[in-house]
Design a protein around this nucleic acid. Structure first.
Length: 360
DNA sequence: AACTCGTGGGC
DNA sequence: TGCCCAAGAGT
């Protein structure tokens, strides 16, 4: 391991931080509830994207008791549009756990925090250091990037050994009496100065004299990250079934995207298909449509996720008022106001927005 | 331990 | 346009 004794890494870093830090709302508190809330929101999420959600959650749920008392659908509805919805489900579970098992008081150590759902090694270190100044180093995407470049670490950050290798550096650099500010500083430095791609002004970086990547002109290739995501293509046919001013919505269950969110009756053929072919495979829907009017057939919606590209066509179906509709499992009728209140994916929301304009 | 889970912005 | 990736965690 590199000898850090003459490096003054933390001193330089925290001095830089005091000058350049952004004034972010969760930095003006040590309340673990607000720290925790902000950290969950910011997982894999940019500050500008998460900020409005932080304000919404603080206003709707000022304390962990308020959050614990809410329904899961209410929490998901507030999370709507932010993505990675397991964060919201775990947020709610953890709030209830803190109330039920910790008497509403957040655990105050890294090891105890790790037991909370949705709180992994990064988030536990963040809460422990930001709220309690416990000397445990945070290791997130920013820290990987800064350490890789400054010390010329070539370990693939997608590999299994990366966490161990980088953690040793991160922990060795952490002053035991200033964990809070140091951890904030190294992440802020990664976000604002040592940015992904090619940073704009490495010339004036506080580590310009020591940085291995700068000396070798390798900022653009460090940190090394190998794995590329395979994108699976899927084909959705969504049927918005309407009868007597009410709409059929389905709660998504199981191991798939948007668990806990609501959508419509769905057919998913393995390849792009025509309606006639779909109906031959689904006699329930065929019977429904034979007692209905097709109000609208949407164009193609292409929705891109990290691992999936979903091609979707929506069918707005008005079922005859006197037809007896026996709904499949997890499906139920909702009026327009209730539909609006249900948590829905951005794909479904984009469609509803367009469809409401067309029908207005 | 590889795979999965969203969305939006930048270039 | 397609690709990267952004304060990761669960399985």
């Amino acid at each position: 391991m590199t000898d850090f004794s003459q490096f003054h890494f933390s001193q330089k870093l925290t001095q830089w931080y005091e000058i350049h830090k952004r004034d972010l709302p969760w930095r003006n508190t040590t309340n673990p509830y607000y720290i925790w809330l902000s950290e969950i929101i910011l997982q894999q999420t940019r500050v500008v994207q998460g900020m409005p959600y932080y304000y919404k959650f603080v206003e709707a749920f000022p304390t962990v008791f308020d959050l614990a008392a809410a329904d899961e659908a209410e929490v998901l509805r507030l999370w709507q549009g932010l993505g990675y919805y397991s964060r919201a489900r775990n947020l709610h579970k953890t709030a209830k756990m803190v109330v039920d098992e910790y008497d509403g008081v957040f655990p105050d150590s890294y090891q105890e925090l790790l037991k909370l759902k949705g709180v992994g090694s990064y988030t536990a270190a963040a809460i422990a250091s930001f709220s309690y100044n416990e000397p445990v180093a945070v290791l997130d995407g920013n820290v990987y990037r800064v350490l890789s470049r400054v010390f010329g670490i070539e370990t693939d950050i997608a590999s299994n050994e990366a966490k161990k290798v980088y953690s040793e550096y991160a922990q060795a650099l952490l002053p035991t009496n200033n964990a809070n500010t140091h951890n904030q500083a190294i992440m802020e430095f990664g976000a604002m100065q040592c940015t992904p791609g090619t940073p704009s002004d490495c010339m004036f970086c506080i580590f310009a004299n020591e940085c291995v990547a700068h000396a070798q002109g390798r900022q653009a290739v460090l940190p090394i990250k190998s794995k590329k995501v395979k994108v699976k293509e899927r084909f959705f046919h969504y049927f918005l079934l309407e009868q007597n001013e009410k709409f059929v919505m389905r709660k998504r269950v199981g191991r798939d995207v948007w668990e806990g969110m609501y959508d419509f009756y769905l057919l998913e053929p393995s390849e792009s298909s025509q309606l006639d072919d779909l109906l031959e495979q689904d006699h329930w829907l065929k019977e429904v449509i034979s007692n209905a009017v097709i109000l609208n057939e949407s164009g193609n919606f292409t929705h891109v996720l990290t691992h999936q590209k979903i091609q979707t066509k929506f069918w707005h179906i008005r079922v005859n008022a006197d037809f007896s509709l026996n709904l499949p499992e997890n499906h139920a009728f909702y009026n327009l106001s209730e539909v609006d209140d249900l948590p829905k994916s951005t794909l479904v929301n984009n469609y509803l927005t367009q469809e409401s304009k067309i029908l207005a």
